[in-house]
């Protein structure tokens, strides 16, 4: 048995493999064209570092289930978005449904976020949950996190219909909970 290959930083030039349209999972010429149903949502947020500076060169990827909570349906739940000059990312997608957990548990609707950047020798993984979701109160992962830090995973409505925001802090006060996947 050979151990898995060592991770290395994506560095600052990963835009060469980025295509900005991938941030819109519902683009008319994309893999989800023609998919019916579900609630269209926008996921946005700002990434800052331990100095409070915006992280303007991060590559954010999402992975999520479809509105029925399935990963193996027709919906392609993958997107990629580079942060802009203010450290912001923005995805257009469908709201995922609840996903089976281990045993007989149910996981609250969530989106997995993966971050790559200069200064990250391997990716950081976290999750985005939705404020006000009843299942958040019984979600096994959320409940395993100390209450004071749980909020770093919970997106809130921005006031614009269908738009949710979750800021990510790599380090320091209100540091986002990152996951050892």
């Amino acid at each position: 048995m050979t151990a898995a290959t060592t991770s290395q930083t994506a560095g600052p030039y990963w835009h060469l493999i980025d295509f900005p349209e991938w941030a819109d999972l519902l683009r008319p010429d994309g893999p989800n064209a023609g998919i019916e149903g579900g609630e269209r949502i926008v996921l946005t947020g700002r990434i800052t570092d331990g100095d409070g500076a915006p992280v303007t060169d991060a590559m954010v990827e999402i992975w999520q289930a479809d509105p029925e909570g399935r990963y193996d349906g027709a919906f392609h739940g993958f997107g990629r978005c580079g942060t802009d000059a203010n450290g912001m990312f923005r995805f257009v997608t469908l709201k995922p449904g609840p996903v089976p957990g281990r045993g007989n548990q149910t996981q609250a609707p969530h989106v997995v976020l993966t971050l790559f950047a200069r200064g990250l020798l391997k990716q950081l993984v976290t999750r985005l949950y939705f404020e006000g979701e009843k299942l958040n109160e019984t979600d096994p992962l959320l409940q395993s996190i100390e209450p004071a830090r749980r909020g770093t995973l919970i997106a809130r409505p921005t006031g614009t219909p269908g738009e949710w925001r979750l800021d990510i802090r790599l380090q320091g006060e209100n540091e986002t909970v990152f996951l050892d996947v």
């Binding site: 992280v55 790599l170 540091e175």
Partner: peptide, 24 residues
Amino acid sequence: STRPRHPKQPLVRVPHTLSEVTGP
């Protein structure tokens, strides 16, 4: 570049669910 960008809190270990074993 790792100085201001590395988390200082330990990562939370996730038992693998469908969200981690599936992929695009």
